[in-house]
C-alpha cells in the first residue's frame, strides 16, 4: 500500500433542504488500500458514495477522487472508477463475453483491446468454457467473481464494492477476497461498503458513519483495541446504537 492519496475528502457537507446528510466528512484513501465504509441504514453512506462516484455534488467542502475535483468535473470521475453491487452487476440474459464487451464498450475501450483482455481474463478465471454461457445459467459464486472482474476490466483507479460477498459460500467468498487483495496489490484501490462485520475485518482500514458524521476511522485491530471489544459487531453496535427515545 502506498502513501499516494487517491481519495481526499475535506469538510465535505451534503444538504438536502434543511437535512444534513453528510456533516463535514474528512478522510483520505490510499492507492492499493482496501477501505471499508460502514454505517447503519440512514447514516449517510449512500449520499457520500454518490459524491465519490461523481453521481452527486457536495454542497460544500473539497472532494478529490483520482485527482479529479468532484465539485467541478463529476463526469470525469466516472471514467476512472469501477462499481459492483451484490444486487445488480451483470445482465442476466447476456453471455459472459457479451457482458464484458458491453462494459468495455461503455468505458470507451477499443474492440481489439476488449477481445485481447477478454481472452486473458477468461483464461485467468478458468472460465473459457463459459464464454458463451448466459449469465442466468451460471452458479452464483462464479457470477460474483465475474462481476468483480468486469468492474475492474477497464483498469480503474478505484473500484467501489457494495456488500461484495454477501450470500456466497465460504470457499467462494475467500477466493473472492483473494481477488480483491490481488487487485489492491496491483495498485487499484478497493472501496467496500457493507453491513457485514466479517467483511469489514478483511479491510486494511475502516470508517464508521453515524448520523451523517464519521465516528471512527482506523484499522480493525486498532479500533477493537481502542474500544476494548473482541469483534467488529460489538464495536459497531457500541458506536452506532441509536439513543433510545425517552419513555412514552
Amino acid at each position: 500500500m502506498s502513501t499516494e492519496k487517491v481519495i481526499e475528502v475535506r469538510e465535505m457537507v451534503k444538504r438536502f433542504g434543511s437535512f444534513v446528510a453528510n456533516d463535514h466528512l474528512s478522510f483520505d484513501v490510499y492507492r492499493g488500500e482496501v477501505f471499508g465504509f460502514l454505517g447503519a441504514n440512514g447514516a449517510g453512506k449512500t449520499t457520500a458514495i454518490k459524491i465519490l462516484c461523481g453521481l452527486s455534488r457536495p454542497s460544500s467542502g473539497s472532494v478529490m477522487v483520482a485527482g479529479i475535483d468532484a465539485s467541478r468535473s463529476p463526469e470525469e470521475i466516472k471514467k476512472k472508477i469501477g462499481y459492483m453491487s451484490q444486487k445488480f452487476s451483470l445482465y442476466e440474459d447476456l453471455t459472459v463475453a457479451e457482458n464484458i464487451e458491453l462494459y468495455g464498450g461503455i468505458y470507451g475501450m477499443r474492440m481489439k483491446e476488449i477481445r485481447d483482455r477478454t481472452d486473458k481474463l477468461l483464461e485467468r478465471l478458468d472460465f473459457t468454457h463459459y464464454r458463451n454461457t448466459i449469465i442466468a445459467d451460471m452458479p452464483l459464486g462464479l457470477k460474483q467473481k465475474l462481476a468483480f472482474s468486469v468492474a475492474v476490466f477497464h483498469d480503474p483507479e478505484i473500484v467501489f464494492l457494495d456488500e461484495p460477498t454477501s450470500g456466497v459460500d465460504p470457499i467462494t467468498r475467500r477466493q473472492f477476497w483473494e481477488m480483491i487483495y490481488e487487485t489492491a496489490a496491483g495498485g487499484i484501490t478497493v472501496f467496500v461498503t457493507t453491513h457485514y462485520m466479517d467483511e469489514a475485518e478483511y479491510c486494511n482500514r475502516i470508517t464508521i458513519m453515524n448520523e451523517g458524521k464519521i465516528v471512527a476511522l482506523d484499522t480493525p485491530a486498532r479500533l477493537k483495541e481502542e474500544y476494548g471489544v473482541t469483534n467488529m459487531e460489538e464495536l459497531f453496535v457500541m458506536i452506532t446504537r441509536p439513543k433510545k427515545p425517552s419513555a412514552v
Binding site: G39, A40, N41, E163, S166, G167, H195, Y196, M197, E233, F236, V237, T240, R241, P242
Partner: peptide, 10 residues
C-alpha cells in the same frame, strides 16, 4: 436479516 444493518440485526 439480509441487507439489514448490524444494529437492527442485533
Amino acid at each position: 436479516t439480509t441487507g439489514v444493518d448490524a444494529v437492527s440485526r442485533a
